[in-house]
Design a protein around this nucleic acid. Structure first.
Lengths: 353, 353
DNA sequence: CTGAAAGCGCTTACAG
DNA sequence: CTGAAAGCGCTTACAG
């Protein structure tokens, strides 16, 4: 092993014949230093290629950043948590602490209450998956206004002043689903769409981008119906059952969400169409994984929850410690494609990436 | 921001009424300490929940690990390098330095020479992608024997004493390819296989696992021929051209490698079969990306080069600093599926994950 | 075998 | 506005 030796404040002080305290003041823009001396120090620092020794800094300040993560707690979010933790390597845990505040899946009131709790606890940054973006936006703006960076993950609050959104690009996601289903159907046949809620932006975008790509690249595929599953297995079951009762020649099903697939699968099995109808949906929750392995779901599209957690903590950390702003205001995670043959690998990998 | 305060050596020393130097000796198994005192110190440390302050440690020792990475330098490997660098976050660069030693794509002599160079330069760990595993194995064993951990990435040297192999599981990869092509062909039709070299283990495994899954899950698909492309565009072109001259009803092509796809594409275009024949291949090199976007390649399977670099450095670091051995002796990266609709996202993502 | 002291590079009071 | 000193938690010689 080698020894690392860089330029120190002491080096700068000596080469200028001044004290080390003054050098520190200049470097950190602290009070009580003349402009002239400051300028000389800064240019000398640049000339020598000074870089602060982070280890010495952290040793003396012992400052620990606290980041609040406000998200639901179901299995999907467990993987987000794992991702956040993996940013905090052995060293990272000294620098950053994550405070998990668990909401229910759709409980905007609780969410704002937790947001308020985080602020009053004095956290240094917040990651949140807004279930009601408009309701949360003023809270986000308040935090950002007082210097607390907020990153939205998984779902955005686009009208707010959040630093960054991290999650899937619903348009790419819908196009990927369309390309898959189009290719699985050899470019022809009848398809139905089950969307979660028509007025949820992400569901809408996953749907319209799907329709557009089908129309342009697979004109011989017809979309026979669009239904709201309300993210419920029961509704998805009824819809699928009714659709097959009405016409038996449906060749493909596109479900814009990760929930409700259990109902689709049950209806297909009952209609003896499981494995014959091509089904494309989202996420790798346990129902989906089971149905992939049974051959009932042809493919499912992931949104890389692990990376959503990792990148959220990283973005907040970089902003607080280095004042680094992200490149754009969106960071899109990848659209992983899960098949029967690769789903186990995709799942096992997340926990250690 | 909060202040972090943990248990220190000083705390242990005071509570035992001894000096701090002695505590340090016990904690690090250094010479010159009685067993009795050592035991008392260790149990007190445990009792208080002592954890060394890494920042103080690194500040005083200023030890920097040097890891040699011996790999080719083409675009694929650039992404491996990016992955390795991303492990070295701002803090990591103080702790670890990576020395890149660039080989040619298939030059075993140069590889062993570079391996020797790394050893005599006194590096602390080595990552290598062996082009001739048997030739390199004794060198690997020599390094490991003298305490220098070696990780193979992308290609393995299974008979050697390497700490870990990081790369794609060729069997999962072949099965994923088979499932894709099988589904794209609706389970029937004639397929040809182009493999790189029959005697390269990875190519062989990607081929046989493909054949097995086709035979079991898609019995109506017939494999009409198996050819060696020698990883060359020219050979791949000739093979494809000849195959289509012989019989025009080939519905699918499986290429077990990432090189040679340019030749396949050219032959398909000339035969006016581009976009009609389903093609599945590997990696996301520029030819492949272009052909995906043109619709000539239906899907390509990636091996996550970014993560191969990241995990290699991480495994070596963990071993050297914490003595941590990996769980198993294989770490399989994920088999990303690239389509026209998601390929840009997959590529852009690597550079920032 | 054990202790006391110096020093890694920085920040933070405290003097002047 | 500037300097001298103490101290963060550790390791490393140097005494005893």
């Amino acid at each position: 092993m080698k020894e690392r030796r860089g330029v120190t404040q002491k080096d700068i002080a000596q080469s200028l014949g001044i004290s080390r305290g003054t050098v520190d003041r200049a470097l950190h823009d602290r009070e009580g230093i003349s402009d002239e001396v400051k300028l000389r120090i800064l240019s000398k620092a640049q000339q020598l290629g000074y870089a602060p020794n982070r280890f010495a800094q952290f040793l003396v300040t012992r400052k620990q950043i606290e980041i609040a993560m406000i998200t639901p707690g179901d299995p999907f979010w467990t993987r987000v948590h794992e991702g956040a933790n993996s940013f905090l390597s052995e060293l990272g845990h000294w620098l950053v602490q994550v405070r998990w505040l668990e909401t229910e899946v759709h409980d905007p009131e609780r969410e704002t209450a937790l947001f308020e709790e985080a602020l009053s606890a004095g956290v240094d940054g917040i990651g949140v998956a807004p279930s009601d973006p408009d309701l949360l936006a003023p809270w986000v703006d308040r935090a950002v206004g007082s210097g607390i960076p907020v990153v939205t993950l998984n779902t955005d609050a686009p009208t707010s002043k959040r630093l960054l959104f991290i999650g899937q690009d619903p348009i790419s996601a819908g196009r990927t689903a369309a390309e898959l289903l189009g290719k699985f159907l050899l470019g022809r046949g009848r398809v139905i769409i089950l969307t979660g809620f028509r007025n949820v932006l992400v569901h809408k975008l996953r749907m319209t981008s799907f329709q557009e790509l089908i129309a342009s690249d697979f004109p011989a595929i017809s979309i026979e119906g669009i239904y709201e599953s309300h993210d419920s297995d029961r509704d998805a079951y009824e819809i699928t059952r009714a659709a097959f009762a009405q016409r038996g020649d449906i060749a493909g099903i596109y479900l814009t969400t990760g929930t409700g697939i259990g109902g689709v699968g049950r209806a297909l099995k009952e209609a003896r169409r499981a494995g014959l109808v091509r089904v494309v949906c989202f996420d790798f929750l346990s129902d989906t994984v089971d149905l992939l392995k049974e051959g009932v779901v042809s493919a499912s599209i992931g949104e890389d929850p692990h990376s959503q957690g990792y990148q959220t903590v990283k973005a907040i950390y970089d902003f607080i410690v280095d004042g680094k702003r992200p490149q754009g205001s969106f960071l899109y995670t990848r659209t992983d494609i899960g098949l029967k043959a690769n789903i186990d690998l995709l799942l096992s990998y997340g926990s250690r990436a």
